[in-house]
Design a protein around this nucleic acid. Structure first.
Length: 577
RNA sequence: GCGCCUGUAGCUCAGUUGGAUAGAGCAUCCCCCUUCUAAGGGGAUGGUCGGGGGUUCGAAUCCCUCCAGGCGUGCCA
């Protein structure tokens, strides 16, 4: 059920029938205030202006063409020409019955599924995942889950960094350890320190550095032994990533890995294609593309360098090859890039050039989904207490430990095993939710106390709300699947809850349109808050039979919606806390 | 220099693409546990939406300008 879509269609049709342009939008929104009803149409004023009539008179004409008697019991003109819609309680009751008896909460899959390529996470395999990878991974995964729920064909692309000069250094260090008969797998169990040690050798030891550079050349020329060593390293590094994904509850798998190196054999083709189209200019020894779109007022153009002096390729080249792959091989309708906001210019360049060179057809939508930086309380990029970059796995361990301490202090009598499990779920959920609930584009401050608080828009609050609903259902000791009594919407709190439950699909739509999961978070937080008010005001288990069954179904639907919503965010729920 | 982003309550954040009297949580202050989890709920206080101009029925949102901060800007990714 999507009330907004339904009202939009009906009101727009009435507007057109009243003389508005065919494409005049009805602009139906959830009402800002209760006195304005449940929904308001804001499009009347604009449409009236275009055809040169008085907005209120036009609104009156539209109402004559509009029959909402099945869904609304009051439709009124207000202010300069708003149309306010008050939904009918009986209709809400029947909509809820549909929702209750649907596996998917009455959310229909899309009529025209798209192939959506989602590029996210993309850690550099030379090092371990750190806090900087959290946002791309968590936000991308939430959007992926939401797209799949709506029936789109999603192709995950984990564009990991597995190529480049730093691998020479790492391979040289592997060689050295092997020569010393040291245990390589042990050394690689902590990639972070492995990288540090290798870097130290590279900086201090001239012979080592020379060998590292030599290995880069061997690697690039496809030397078999060198490749084998490299592959060994990549495998171990990927296992680290997968361990973190498991801990985080992220849906990425090995099959989703499409590394930078996969495009190596295509990079020269990219250059050739650009050259054949006359797009390349050699400048100071490098092959560049100068596009007018990136000129300043003086006419100076920021070039896109696609091949370095000496023949090396750059990440621009790889990204161009990736666009072409996503277009030609994956046949994408949309390609979403969950990548740091600092790469905005880079993606503008890549997208513009891809269109110009025909790598991307007009039909494909290329969308950079930028996100801000995770900050510490000092307002600077988040670091550990010792000042280093925070390893993601360590951060997640700490989250679970903190949550465990919290659970143990609130529930001292609970068996430790259960405390641990709750700590795990709450800890991970807190970190993910803190990230997901903020507007993607802005920086946010990482704060343990805020994210682990049970108050406000936090994971613990939502999980608690869910477990509380689940507890009511358990205590009812009824066969809830057999519940079939009509759902009656009478009290204000019942009504508010009913309307909110019917708006789940609208929240999903927002997440998909803009790649912004915080809309889902806001929705779930509001839903939980409204349920809590309902819970205070409307006794469920102590109500008499018909009322009890009606309210129990409201509770059931709330539980199902919270669970499904959190699942779309990639967050586990708990039946008991 | 140029470009992009950000600036909303003391703090942390929303604000559905130009809609009605700008909203939450924390903090502060007051209420509510003999009834389904008080890890909860209800209420109060708190705003020149960075400043100034403009566009129009209507601006936190769009345009111009200034201020403050962040980031990017030819051979790292």
């Amino acid at each position: 059920m999507n009330i907004q879509t339904l009202l939009n269609q009906r009101i727009q049709a009435a507007m057109v029938a009243s003389g508005a342009a065919d494409d005049a939008p009805a602009l139906v929104r959830q009402s800002a205030k209760v006195q304005f009803g449940d929904y308001q149409a804001n499009g009347i004023m604009g449409a009236a202006k275009k055809i040169g009539t008085n907005p209120r008179e036009f609104a009156a004409k539209v109402l004559e063409q509009l029959d909402l008697s099945d869904v609304a019991d009051k439709v009124e003109i207000a202010g300069p020409g708003f149309i306010n819609i008050f939904l009918k309680n009986e209709w809400l009751g029947s909509a809820l019955a549909d929702l209750r008896h649907s596996e998917r909460l009455d959310v229909a899959t899309v009529e025209a599924p798209q192939t959506v390529v989602v590029d996210y996470s993309a850690p550099n395999l030379a090092k371990e995942m750190h806090v900087g990878h959290l946002r791309s991974t968590v936000i991308g995964d939430a959007v992926v889950r939401t797209l799949e729920f709506m029936g789109h064909n999603v192709v995950r692309q984990n564009h990991v960094g597995d190529w480049g000069t730093q691998f020479g250094m790492l391979l040289a260090y592997m060689e050295r350890l092997r020569a010393e008969n040291s245990e390589i797998s042990m050394a690689l169990s902590d990639l972070e320190s492995f990288y540090r040690e290798a870097k130290k050798c590279f900086d201090d030891d001239e012979a080592f550095a020379a060998r590292a550079r030599e290995l880069v050349v061997e690697l690039q020329s496809g030397d078999e032994q060198c490749m084998a060593l490299w592959q060994e390293f990549i495998n171990i590094s990927l296992e680290h990533c997968e361990e973190t994904y498991r801990m985080l509850g992220v849906s990425l798998e090995r099959k989703d890995v499409m590394p930078e190196s996969a495009y190596n054999s295509d990079l020269q083709n990219v250059i050739n294609d650009l050259e054949a189209q006359g797009l390349i200019k050699e400048d100071q020894g490098a092959k560049c593309v100068f596009l007018e779109e990136f000129a300043n007022k003086e006419g100076d153009i920021t070039p896109i360098i696609v091949q370095k002096t000496g023949g090396g390729f750059l990440y621009a080249t790889t990204d161009l090859a990736a666009v072409r792959y996503r277009q030609k091989v994956l046949n994408a309708d949309r390609a979403l890039y969950f990548v740091d906001a600092r790469q905005s210019l880079h993606f503008q360049q890549i997208f513009t050039l891809s269109r110009k060179a025909g790598f991307a057809q007009p039909s494909i939508s290329l969308e950079h989904m930028p996100f801000g930086t995770v900050m510490g309380s000092d307002g600077k990029p988040f670091k550990t207490r010792s000042g280093g970059v925070a390893k993601l796995s360590a951060l997640l361990e700490e989250a679970q430990e903190r949550a465990f301490q919290l659970v143990a202090s609130k529930n001292p009598d609970m068996p430790e095993e259960e405390q641990r499990n709750i700590g795990r779920v709450v800890g991970i959920a807190s970190v993910k939710y803190a990230d997901l609930s903020k507007n993607r584009t802005s920086d946010y401050v990482f704060n343990w106390d805020n994210m682990l608080s049970f108050e406000g828009n936090t994971a613990p609050y939502l999980l608690y709300a869910y477990s509380r609903v689940a507890s009511i259902v358990r205590r009812s000791e009824m066969d809830v699947s057999a519940l079939n009594a009509p759902i009656t919407v009478v009290e204000d709190q019942e009504r508010a809850l009913a309307v909110k439950l019917c708006q789940f699909e609208e929240a999903i739509q927002q997440v998909i349109n803009d790649g912004m999961p915080h809309f889902m978070c806001a929705y779930l937080y509001e839903l939980a808050g409204i349920f809590m008010s309902f819970y205070e005001a409307c006794p469920i288990l102590n109500a008499e039979d018909a009322l009890k069954e009606s309210r129990l179904q409201l509770a059931l639907s709330t539980a199902a919606t919270l669970k499904q919503g959190l699942e779309l965010l990639g967050i586990e729920t708990l039946e008991r806390m």
